[in-house]
Design a protein around this nucleic acid. Structure first.
Length: 289
DNA sequence: CACTTGACCTGTCCGC
DNA sequence: TGCGGACAGGTCAAGT
């Protein structure tokens, strides 16, 4: 899925596109994608205006004027694509080929606004979900209670970063990085990219990582995520932003999905293996087990 | 508790 | 071209 930079890119895009609009309709395919009752939808969603769009970890929240929110997780293949009226009915828009194709077989939820524009939640693998709930209850969700700090917040220090890993001392550093209760928002792409940047082998025991290495990992993780946000995220396969466009971070990736190619730092051939149940990319020269 | 593995789904790619 | 298996950006429920 979309990791922190991708979800943040969607958040920023949607903020420009739908804040202030009123919801006129909502349809969905299965209760799995959108488990609310029609009564809930009528009472708290239809007629409501979008007041704010927030992100916590990889979760997106669309706040409504009814004090309810749409809480959304894109998981592996989720997309939120907005189609404006000009795009939809006017000719010659650069995205015509894509927007005219929506909804498609992966569309799970369609939200219509009062100006006839639409927001599509597409999800090929059906792992993702959209849920309508009271805004004030969001912090009570089990995920929100356990999720760790936002790594890009200015007040998040290298010392806090290092201390968060104590609970995962006996597992490998990659599994710890992917654990959302340690630090929020890290997924498979940025875990590999940050470990390469900090020259740490992903199978190293978390308890063996030195203070200097934690500091390097902290710096690299923030740099790689900030760069990705700047580039509009990573489009490995399915990810697109709120306008249906792909991000360009993959053009800048140093190891992720680059097995067989030379390490940009030393030229050694990048290798792919499996760590923490996930495809993992390393430079075997720069990152020593 | 900490840790690992399988399950949830569909689509695509790769080797035979 | 067909078919089986592995794999894909995430999380959770089980198991040890």
């Amino acid at each position: 899925m979309p990791e922190l930079p991708e979800v943040e890119t969607v958040r920023r895009g949607l903020s420009e596109l739908i804040i202030g609009k009123a919801i006129a309709s909502a349809t969905n395919d299965t209760p799995k994608s959108f488990p609310n009752t029609q009564t809930d939808v009528k009472q708290f969603m239809i007629g409501a205006k979008v007041t704010a769009i927030r992100r916590r970890a990889k979760v997106l929240m669309i706040d409504l004027s009814t004090e309810y929110s749409l809480v959304i997780h894109l998981k592996m293949t989720g997309q939120l694509v907005y189609v404006g009226t000009k795009d939809r009915f006017g000719a010659g828009h650069p995205n015509d080929s894509l927007v005219n194709a929506l909804p498609d077989k992966s569309t799970r939820v369609t939200i219509g606004f009062d100006d006839d524009s639409q927001l599509f939640f597409n999800d090929q693998r059906k792992f993702g979900w959209v849920k309508l709930m009271p805004t004030l209850e969001i912090p009570n969700l089990p995920f929100m209670k356990k999720v760790g700090p936002e790594p890009l917040e200015a007040e998040f220090t290298p010392q806090q970063f290092r201390d968060r890993f104590r609970r995962r001392a006996r597992t490998n550093i990659k599994a710890a990085l992917l654990d959302q209760s340690v630090v929020a928002g890290v997924g498979n792409i940025y875990a590999d990219e940050a470990l390469w940047g900090a020259k740490i082998h992903p199978t190293r025991l978390t308890g063996s990582i030195t203070d200097d290495e934690f500091e390097a990992l902290y710096t690299e993780l923030r740099e790689v995520m900030n760069l990705s946000i700047e580039k509009g995220g990573s489009s490995n396969r399915n990810y697109v932003n709120a306008e249906g466009k792909r991000g360009s971070y993959m053009d800048f990736a140093r190891v992720f999905r680059r097995e067989g190619l030379p390490c940009p730092r030393c030229g050694t051939t990048i290798e792919k293996s499996r760590v923490a149940g996930r495809g993992t990319h390393i430079c075997p020269f720069c990152q020593v087990a």
